[in-house]
Simulated assay, not measured.
Amino acid sequence: MNQRKSLKELNLLDKFLFDEAMDDPENVKTMLDIILSQNTNLKHPPQTEKEQRTSIDNRQIRLDVYAIDEDDVIYEVEAQKENTHNLPKRSRLYQGIIDSKLLPPGVVDFNLLNEVLIVLIMPFDLFGYGLYRYTFQMKCQEIPELKLDDGATRIFLNTKGKHPESVSPELIELLKYMEHSTDEVSEACESKRIQEMHRRVCQIRASEKTEVKYMQSWEERIMIKQEGIAEGRIEGEKALLKSLIEKKMAKKYSAEQISAMLEVDVSEVENIMKEIQNEKYL
């Protein structure tokens, strides 16, 4: 089990601190302004840990930071410490679910869809070209200069880039600060905006209320993990029992005989036998 870091040891790439810091609209604005080289005016306070799904039967996603500016552009920003080897397709899923919620029922003018920017910030080079930023938009393969202009942009940021000439110095400072959110890194930054962000981050780290919230969050994750292990063990035992009963059924043993052989309550054996029989008729 991983050793729990103290709140003061967390960096902005750590999910808890990232979510807490991005509850502050000023931090979200600073981050978007630097990443996109623009002046972002947020329409509403950003939402962190925003849950999205298209229906109760479909997969739910949880967005780290969800924000809308005064031009109705939607921003979804994720801090991703681990390479799960599915991030391009995960960003596609995020794009699809966000899009599915944008038009009210009955609206057929798809030009009303908001522009959506999805940004993933990572301490590794997902694509291996040494860039700090990889920006993706749809375009025609046959005519590369022909863009689709569907309003969808996905940006993958790499804190370990090797080509500073392709991005602003302030973005490089921001990425380094997000990976190592320390006094030393902040002081080395020429960007006053990053230094001001660090001041706000230090306030979060010094808050007793946030410390309690962090401890509760950690304890909840441990409980969920333990419950998952227990559930997995139980499911494994059930699958093994079902397999054994199915083999006994194939040899024409009765429920009572199987119950005695496996030392399992006869009612449980009967229920599993019914389940096996029903599956055969599906």
Rank of each mutant, 00 (worst) to 15 (best):
G130F: 00
D71H: 02
E219C: 04
E82Y: 11
F156Y: 15
C202H: 09
V116E: 12
F127E: 00
T210N: 09
E246L: 09
P45K: 11
K252D: 13
M178S: 00
E187S: 08
E208I: 08
E173V: 10
V28G: 07
Q38I: 09
T159N: 00
V201E: 11
D64A: 04
M1S: 14
C202Y: 04
M197Q: 15
I68D: 07
L7T: 06
V116C: 10
S91A: 12
Y132T: 13
S181N: 01
I224Q: 12
A21V: 02
K43I: 07
F127S: 03
Y66Q: 01
Y129V: 07
V185Q: 11
E20V: 05
V167Y: 06
K213P: 04
L157H: 04
G106N: 11
P169Q: 02
T182A: 00
K147V: 03
E268N: 12
L113Y: 08
L32I: 01
V107E: 15
K160I: 12
D125Y: 06
L63V: 14
Y134R: 08
F127M: 01
E231P: 03
M249L: 14
L146T: 05
D265V: 01
Q52P: 00
F110W: 02
Y253H: 14
S37R: 12
Q137I: 15
C189G: 08
E187A: 13
D125W: 06
N27F: 05
S37K: 14
E76W: 07
T159D: 01
L157G: 03
P123E: 03
S267K: 13
Q226N: 11
C189R: 08
E227C: 12
S166E: 10
A21G: 00
V119N: 02
K238W: 10
Q257M: 12
R221N: 05
V269W: 03
D150E: 00
Y132H: 15
